[in-house]
Design a protein around this nucleic acid. Structure first.
Length: 492
RNA sequence: GGCACCGUCGCCAAGUGGUAAGGCAGAGGUCUGCAAAACCUUUAUACCCCGGUUCGAAUCCGGGCGGUGCCUCCA
């Protein structure tokens, strides 16, 4: 089965055929850097990170470009309100983007160009658009004449006359037609400004992506991505600009991810119902957020809630438990040589089939859960096995864990050391519980003494004391361990 | 008003023509001193409703109802 991708342009899943054999050019609209990233930004970044990783897994040489929009009205406004410059604002939020988003296990794109580094390329494109009659100068700026581009609306399925009927179009006295959009704006005093044939000014929003994608990927490239909300007008306008300039097809496959909702409503700054990545990461491991984000298909809306995050955490914890077990058991029992080259082709095949069907990560997680149950079943057999059998079981567990890790590499999960994951979670949460780790260990020892005396009342008292504190004990053959009590029922 | 998308177990979520994956929660059980964890069993005669096409539909078509998004900055 070959890779099939849902193409917004045609509204269908299509078999993916790259322009150049074995290579893929992909451009994804990044963020406008005027504030901290919220979960919606995280979703878009994670979704395309998974796509990037999977394309590479398939053996493609991928050129992945994701831009920063660092010149924009909102940035300017922020700078004014802070009394700083827009360059400072942009720089700061680019830093914050790295700080907040990269812990989610994001691989660096091939290039992360900034709009302000490509002003000349934009000017060059605008010039051609004017020469070709697609754009006109007016009031110190330049506008794209939407009516001149025959295919306008082909991506979003909109028709020009229907758009005109809509009552929500920006009014600008200089526009010949209300649908026209700005390619170049005259700068007001104090705003960032660049020299241009039309005087000091700054670029409109849409032209930067046309200019940068053209520069790094050429006239026609394979994949262009972004959030659903970018389909219109941003991507529609990009097509008008780029195809206006080159006269050739701009993009073969358009991929758009769905929104993150809060109570079935789109998360957005303007609605004020957003959570920043930063505040979520205070309470949850980054991989929990990542797992939550890829537990649904990338085109579906997902509802963000504490309950759903807790559920994701529970699932992730289970995987790290078996990962930890395999790691610990291997130290004493099986040399890695015995397991490293083991393959599990059937499972990898299922994984590939799921991913090939428009990157169905939700199905992949389902398969992974099946596998996890198999592994726990094996693990449960160990106590009653001979040492020969134990070794055999461990080898099989390692095969499965190998698959988990390999799939994890592609979807960006299970990438941290199990010890670190488990201890890290404990350390972060234990502060909230008002108890010290040494105290827990002391009580465990005390309780185990009681258990040896068969003083069950004392033992149970200690256990329930700890449970009230939020600490759950687990008695195993290897001794007593503890974990932070996590209930998906608890709400915040 | 125009254009899209969506409606699957209490909740989350795959499945888009061949007879309903997976997770959470629930119930019973194994293990355990008792628990916890894990495992086992169990939980949708059925996919918003009504028609139609078909040997056969959650899946296709038509009509409702409900929800969301885009048409303004937005991942």
């Amino acid at each position: 089965m070959s890779l099939r991708i849902y193409n917004t342009l045609t509204g269908q899943k299509e078999i993916f055929k790259p322009i150049k054999h074995g290579e893929v050019g992909m451009y994804v609209c990044g963020v406008t850097v005027y504030d901290l990233c919220h979960i919606g930004h995280a979703r878009a970044t994670v979704v395309f990170d998974v796509i990037y990783r999977y394309l590479k897994y398939l053996g493609y040489k991928v050129t992945y470009i994701r831009n920063f929009t660092d010149v924009d009205d909102k940035i300017i406004n922020k700078a004014i309100s802070e009394g700083t410059g827009s360059h400072e604002v942009a720089e700061r939020y680019i830093k914050d983007f790295y700080k907040d988003i990269y812990p989610l296990g994001i691989e660096r794109p091939t290039c992360e160009p900034r709009a302000t580094d490509h002003i000349q390329e934009m000017i060059d494109m605008i010039r051609i658009l004017i020469d070709k009659g697609y754009a006109y100068e007016a009031g110190g700026g330049v506008f794209y004449s939407v009516g001149r581009f025959e295919d306008y609306g082909k991506l979003s399925g909109k028709k020009i006359d229907e758009l005109l009927a809509g009552a929500r179009i920006e009014v600008d006295e200089h526009k010949r037609d209300p649908l026209d959009f700005a390619l170049w704006k005259e700068s007001k005093p104090g705003e960032p400004a660049w020299e241009s044939p039309w005087g000091m000014g700054r670029p409109g929003w849409h032209i930067e992506c046309s200019a940068m994608s053209h520069k790094y990927l050429g006239k026609t490239f394979d994949i262009h991505g972004g959030g659903r909300d970018l389909i219109f007008p941003h991507h529609e306008n990009e097509i008008a600009q780029s195809e206006g300039v080159t006269g050739e097809r701009y993009v073969n496959y358009w991929i758009h991810n769905g929104f993150v909702d809060i109570n079935k409503e789109k998360m957005s700054k303007s609605l004020g119902n957003f959570f920043t990545v930063r505040e979520v990461l205070v309470r949850y491991h980054p991989e929990v957020l990542r797992l939550f984000l890829i537990s649904s298909h990338y085109r579906s809306p997902i509802d963000f809630s504490d309950y759903n995050l807790k559920e994701a955490k529970k699932v992730l914890d289970r995987f790290y438990d078996i990962l930890w077990f395999a790691k610990t058991a291997n130290m004493v029992s099986v040399s890695m040589k015995e397991v490293l080259h083991e393959e599990n082709d059937d499972l990898m095949k299922r994984f590939e089939d799921a991913m090939n069907d428009d990157f169905n990560t939700a199905l992949v997680i389902g398969y992974l859960n099946d596998l996890l149950r198999d592994l726990n079943r094996l693990k449960d057999r160990m106590p009653n096995s001979t040492s020969e059998e134990k070794k055999e079981i461990l080898i099989n567990i390692n095969k499965g864990v190998g698959v988990v890790k390999r799939v994890g590499d592609v979807i960006g999960l299970f990438c941290v050391d199990p010890d670190e994951y488990i201890k890290g979670q404990r350390l972060e949460r234990i502060k909230e519980l008002g108890i010290e780790e040494v105290e827990i260990n002391r009580l465990i020892e005390e309780r185990n003494n009681a258990r040896q005396r068969k003083d069950w009342d004392a033992a149970d008292n200690t256990r329930s004391y700890l449970e009230k504190k939020g600490i759950v004990l687990e008695d195993t053959q290897e001794g007593t361990s503890w974990r932070i009590k996590d209930s998906v029922k608890a709400t915040v």
